[in-house]
């Protein structure tokens, strides 16, 4: 698949706080991601990576602060229809078939020729032969492929991925790395959380580390990529 070129979109987080009761999941996070960057979020469990991604996807509203999506040409935009989100959960229905799932979301997104788009994506993620199978019969890796296919349905300008390699076998990881490389090269902005170095982290143009809800290291301000990914010096 050669992704279509897109109008590049950046993301600006300004003083983002997220509290759950008295607990801070994120504390005054300010961050600007330029259009076309491929950024890895690293950090220990509970450091706030998932919360930051869910806020970027607009699934969670921040307690305070703001998030803006910036189109290079048109300035600030509402990016709900321009983001693709792969979460921890697969975000697909177990009781529907692979094809029914993609058709459902394609129709909700108003994608023209939804059936053709669903078919193409099922080919891409290697599930074309199982298109008529219920998702509940899939392995974890196959479900993760479904999750990625769903996120790519609308050819998003911004891709948000929360540990996207979860459940994938080595071939799956290579496939995902290849797909993300093409996305990055086509000008899409990618923000993803990862653990450790991998074929996928090698795509990063920038890495950021979170600790207890705060941003503590950024390759843009001098930290090295391997040290952020491996928590060296943490």
């Amino acid at each position: 698949m050669t992704p279509a070129a897109v109008s590049p979109v950046g993301i600006r987080f300004e003083n983002i706080d997220k509290r759950y009761g008295g607990l801070y999941a994120l504390r005054r996070v300010s961050l600007e991601i330029a259009a076309g960057e491929c950024v890895v979020l690293a950090g220990r469990n509970g450091s706030g990576k998932t919360t930051l991604l869910r806020i970027a996807a607009r699934v969670v509203r921040p307690s305070s602060g703001s998030i803006t999506f910036l189109d290079r040409k048109n300035g600030a935009i509402t990016a709900a229809s321009q983001t693709g989100f792969v979460a921890h959960a697969t975000m697909v229905y177990d009781e529907l078939t692979a094809e029914e799932n993609l058709l459902l979301f394609a129709r909700l997104l108003g994608i023209a020729e939804a059936r053709a788009r669903a078919g193409t994506l099922l080919e891409e993620v290697g599930l074309a032969e199982r298109r008529k199978s219920l998702v509940r019969t899939f392995s974890r890796g196959m479900r993760q492929r479904m999750a990625i296919a769903r996120a790519l349905l609308n050819e998003p300008s911004v891709l948000l991925l929360d540990e996207p390699a979860t459940g994938l076998d080595p071939q799956g990881v290579s496939w995902l790395a290849g797909t993300l490389r093409q996305m990055r090269d086509a000008g899409r902005t990618i923000l993803m959380s990862l653990h450790g170095e991998s074929e996928i982290s090698a795509l990063a143009t920038r890495a950021i580390r979170l600790e207890a809800g705060s941003l503590i290291a950024d390759t843009r301000t001098g930290a090295s990529l391997p040290s952020i990914l491996t928590f060296a010096g943490a």
């Binding site: 869910r54 996807a57 607009r58 699934v59 709900a80 983001t83 989100f85 979460a87 921890h88 959960a89 697969t90 975000m91 697909v92 229905y93 177990d94 979301f105 909700l108 997104l109 108003g110 769903r150």
Partner: peptide, 14 residues
């Protein structure tokens, strides 16, 4: 809530 499909719906509908 099982697979967080509600989030997927919210991201997909206008």
């Amino acid at each position: 809530q099982n697979n967080d499909t509600l989030s997927a719906l919210r991201l997909s509908v206008t």
